[in-house]
Design a protein around this nucleic acid. Sequence first.
DNA 1: TTTCGTGGTTTAGTATACCAAACACATGAG
DNA 2: CTCATGTGTTTGGTATACTAAACCACGAAA
Lengths: 228, 228
Amino acid sequence: MVVTLTLQAESSEGKRLSDSVYETMLSAIISGKLKPGTIVSEVALSRQLNVSRTPVHDALRQLAKDGLVQQRANHRAVVAEFTAADIYDLYQMRKLLEGEAARLAAKGMDRATLARLRETANSLAEDRDNPKWGALWADFDEDFHNAIAESSGSPRLCQDIARYHLLHRGFNKLGTTPEGLEHALEEHVRILDAIEKRDPKEAQRAMVDHLQEWQAYFVRHFRKKSSE
Amino acid sequence: MVVTLTLQAESSEGKRLSDSVYETMLSAIISGKLKPGTIVSEVALSRQLNVSRTPVHDALRQLAKDGLVQQRANHRAVVAEFTAADIYDLYQMRKLLEGEAARLAAKGMDRATLARLRETANSLAEDRDNPKWGALWADFDEDFHNAIAESSGSPRLCQDIARYHLLHRGFNKLGTTPEGLEHALEEHVRILDAIEKRDPKEAQRAMVDHLQEWQAYFVRHFRKKSSE
DNA sequence: TTTCGTGGTTTAGTATACCAAACACATGAG
DNA sequence: CTCATGTGTTTGGTATACTAAACCACGAAA
């Protein structure tokens, strides 16, 4: 299967080419254009993106560090594949980290952010017939979890959460149901309620419960897929 | 100040040169040979290590991703400096992650590992006049925290703990007192006791308390240093 | 004395070239 | 037909070359 990729627009801004390649690859993976198991070749990529191998090489090393591609000893790099055990472990980490972040955010989130999240959640709930609902949801989900992480006041916690959220988005697209997303939206509202009440315990519990449901869903999903 | 570096021995094994450079830099930073604030130049490093700039460039990017060096827009990279707030944040993460690991290890650590840790702890307690006690302690500390992380059964938790423990070692050498280390040894024994009793709550609490003390100590230490 | 060029030097980023290792396919022996 | 072997191709890792940008030091002008 041939996948066409083009460098993203922000490449023109005075950034590094290797960063542009990184972001291009990243969004290709998390959008599902590059599926798990796909082998990526440095030369092929560099030709497609009209850059030399050097920045591509750099980008792949970074992606490998993120866990989004695996650089095998075979001189071959593949887009990371997730087993059910991987997914389980990933969500164990998300529950731990984001539960803590939610707890802290209940104390620290400012009113403006809280209002913005609530507004977006409301508009999403009323706009469920929008054909682009899935994409809107993904943006909100990103914003939501990111805002809570930042409200924790811990830069490292924030960074680690972002890293795991990236992995989450990496296979997210492989299988979600509209009902699942609507249910998740309700859970987000529950978390927001707890934060607004400034109830750390409840915020943490709501976040952990929320992630628990995703965890169960995806683990089931991946077990099914690997057994067929 | 001139710092002499040589590639570590494992460079000969079929690994990547860039990984060897990475490990060399890493140990130079965590051992204190390369002090925070030192500017590192790719050409200077490549000459010192007798490799080309390419693997050095790679290694620096990886170290930047770890937060051990900062790549400034100026085309200059410096060894990361820690502020008191950084230290605080770092230990907040360690308490969260390693507390969880200790909790899980109380359920999952096998008897052989437990026995090995206890034996090392005992021999350290009796050997406190050894001139190399500091180095022996560092090895034990590494082994101890690593063993608990692995006993958690979560690969990602293990990996993240290792990453933060690395940062810990990065400035650890900058100031510890013999009394502090002996006290820490006692705390380790408390954690081992809890694990042996298979008491997850107590193991977690003991670990968090232990890290809390380091946190308070280092934050105090760094505040003092930055104010002088 | 201070300030603003100005050119040489050094930096990191990128492109290109080279190489050893590993793959893939074909061909031959059994 | 199967399996081993050999060879051409492709891979990623490394070295080297080139470039643009940033630093630095020195000098001229205010």
